[in-house]
């Protein structure tokens, strides 16, 4: 597993909820480093604890419901065990907690999101989210580059 894991998730048949998939596809085209692994998933499941435990940093990408449509946010996520009754659909914090509990380690993690406008049936992003997608991928690209430079400095 690469040092950096980018994990886009959501339902691509639910309009803006497909943001994670679209971002993962876009980043797969622009980020070609062997140090970066990119996954797209419908939801976060316990099985992801394995790949997470092998990464140094993970970027979760998802559409949010908080804020103005198209608003970009990037917030750190820390492990937190979830009491969800339905444990094959987890929050980023819960998957990180599983990684910690199962493998004794969890990566530094960030949740990068755009506030969605439309979560109804459909395969297209709403105009504000479509317009915000390049900003999101650029931000993730810059953060990945920054982490790469940090690693290069440490290796010297």
């Amino acid at each position: 597993m690469a040092r950096i894991l980018i994990l886009g998730y959501g339902n691509p048949l639910r309009s803006d909820d497909g943001l994670g998939w679209r971002a993962a596809e876009e980043l797969s085209r622009t980020l070609s480093s062997a140090d970066v692994d990119i996954l797209a998933r419908h939801q976060l499941t316990p099985e992801l604890a394995g790949p997470l435990s092998q990464a140094a940093t993970v970027f979760f990408i998802d559409a949010s419901r908080e804020g103005e449509p198209g608003e970009l946010s990037c917030v750190p996520v820390t492990p937190q065990a979830s009491g969800a009754g339905f444990s094959h659909q987890l929050s980023p914090a819960a998957v990180l907690a599983l990684s910690q509990l199962l493998f004794g380690t969890s990566p530094r993690a960030f949740l990068v999101s755009l506030c969605g406008q439309n979560f109804d049936h459909g395969e297209n992003l709403s105009p504000p989210v479509a317009a915000g997608l390049p900003r999101l991928t650029a931000l993730v690209g810059q953060l990945v580059q920054h982490l790469g430079q940090q690693q290069a400095v440490r290796s010297r």
């Binding site: 499941t45 316990p46 099985e47 604890a49 394995g50 065990a81 979830s82 009491g83 969800a84 009754g85 444990s87 819960a94 907690a97 599983l98 509990l101 199962l102």
Partner: peptide, 21 residues
């Protein structure tokens, strides 16, 4: 839930996750 299982019997939880994977 799975976290409760993990707290009481970590290897059982790990086996479940591995088998589904």
């Amino acid at each position: 839930n799975l976290f409760g299982v993990l707290a009481k019997n970590p290897s059982l939880a790990r086996d479940g996750i591995r088998l589904r994977q």
